[in-house]
């Protein structure tokens, strides 16, 4: 990856294995600060594991990860997770209302979220104020994802990890979330790492792309690499995905 940019996250020979099964092998590379980097590759490539390493839900078995130039181990776990937010794939929620879910990051710190702030965050993700007291069970898939993103924003993370947040949504919701990702990146200058199976999204929205296969980083660079991959495996994968 282009090293002209300051890295938000840097991996140096990172391995991850669980129960003697290797998930990630020798990952070396960086996610540029303030940019949107997409992670693409077939299922089982280790993309979600890589994201979970970035906010400390998992720890690398070998190698070094630096977040904003600091070794990841220098961060206290709860501080790291507020600094590097993650929107999980299934948009898990706690039982209750949209309000309770939005307030969760603050509640965990013993603080309160004002109604005004909650409304502002909802508007930021394109949801009306009327959703605030709606039950989580009444939301559509797209609305859940928006609440999940808004909730992550409340911690004011400078790095945001997005795990296949558009994979189960209808076309209109996908477009809305895509627009939202660009807006958040520009408005809050948040570094975003986004796992997607949609290569068109990676090409049009992502500034940079990592292509991962079988736990390895195969190719990384500007998203335009997807138009002209140098690696034959990547070329085959892109052809199969009908970009």
């Amino acid at each position: 990856m282009n090293t002209l940019y300051e890295p938000a996250i840097h991996f140096q020979q990172v391995h991850f294995s669980v129960n003697d099964k290797t998930i990630l092998k020798s990952i070396t590379g960086s996610f540029p600060k303030g940019q949107i980097t997409t992670l693409v590759g077939p299922s089982g490539a280790g993309k979600t594991t890589l994201l979970k390493l970035c906010n400390g839900l998992l720890s690398a078995t070998q190698g070094h990860i630096r977040i904003d130039q600091q070794p990841i181990s220098a961060f206290e776990p709860t501080a790291l997770r507020r600094h590097v937010g993650i929107a999980l794939q299934a948009a898990p929620m706690i039982a209750g209302t949209v309000w309770e879910n939005l307030a969760l990051p603050r509640t965990l710190q013993g603080k309160k979220l004002s109604q005004q702030e909650a409304t502002q965050y909802l508007e930021d993700v394109g949801l009306a104020k009327s959703f605030l007291h709606q039950s989580i069970d009444e939301l559509s898939g797209g609305q859940r994802q928006k609440v999940s993103i808004a909730r992550t924003l409340i911690n004011q993370s400078s790095i945001l990890l997005l795990d296949e947040i558009t994979s189960a949504l209808d076309r209109q919701s996908v477009q809305e979330i895509e627009k939202l990702i660009v807006t958040i990146n520009e408005k809050y200058n948040v570094t975003m790492i986004w796992i997607t199976h949609n290569l068109q999204q990676a090409l049009t929205i992502g500034h940079y792309t990592w292509v991962m296969m079988d736990g390895e980083l195969i190719e990384a660079g500007r998203s335009t690499l997807l138009n002209a991959p140098t690696n034959p495996r990547v070329a085959e994968f892109i052809q199969g995905a009908n970009l």
Partner: peptide, 20 residues
Amino acid sequence: KNEMELILSLGGTPKQAIHR
């Protein structure tokens, strides 16, 4: 487990994650 992981991912402690 997803709910517990969510709370940890938002900066919660293990005690907060497993409280419910």
